[in-house]
Amino acid sequence: MASLKALRARITSVKSTRKITQAMKMVAAAKLRRAQLAAEAARPYAERMERMLASLGASVAGSPDAPKMLVGTGSDKVHLLVVVTGDRGLAGAFNTNVSRFARTKIRELEAEGKTVKVLSVGRKGATFLKREFGSRIVGEISFQGKKRVDFGDAQAVATRVTEMLEAGEFDVCTLVYNRFRSVISQVPSAQQMIPAMLPATSATAAPTGPQALYEYEPSEEEILATLLPQNLAIQMYRAILENAAGFFGSQMTAMDNATRNAGEMINKLTLNYNRTRQANITRELIEIISGAEAV
């Protein structure tokens, strides 16, 4: 049995761990609220962008010189996966889940004989994927040290992807990220970005529908040429924001569990400590009494 001193030391150490996890939980909860607000604030823009893209895309998609970003390069040999993960750990299975999901995806694609390239956004995913797919990683982007990720950061990532597309470095681009379903549930999901998946309405809308009546200034092609990269950026921005919200949600849950576990551990250790203390007293008493009887 451990000595009293050792037990006391362990109790103090677990108590301070509990203090830390409790503080981290509070911080994560506060940041979660902010991240959720930011994710919600980005929604109107994304919705309207989608609507505009639907009406534009429907009118251009048929033409042979439609931009690559909309219709793809015509082949699907080289896949680019943009994997969005957290920059920090201590958030339960958050980073592992999305990284594993990406790993399965990469294996699937490679089994089909496709070439895979990985662009990692977030430090944790990069470390995970590097072990197995080190040679496929074409870039790493991290927002570590930034207080808040703004639209400009997302735009920088999107520009990078656009440049790669223009250089013909990939055919299909898929975004892998943790979709924020609720505070306690984040679902790793994949979303194809290039060729752009137009919202379902555009496919069903007849060419004579109200969308076909728009006038364009400058031409449709020119607008589309700026709108598509912008759409890419906003999708990226949304993924990054949802990732941030999911991260804090996951961290909050993980820290809540850790706090509870620490509490249980303290109870057990305290019980153990008290029993040991009593056993010691009893033993000493027996020693004294039996000593006195012997005399």
Binding site: M52, S55, P210, Y214, E215, Y216, E217, P218, E222, I223
Partner: peptide, 19 residues
């Protein structure tokens, strides 16, 4: 501030998409 010059929008404007 449309790409090809300032543009005033009043109610009932023709449908347009501009940069």
């Amino acid at each position: 501030p449309a790409a090809e010059g300032e543009m005033g929008v009043l109610p009932g404007h023709a449908p347009m998409i501009v940069t």
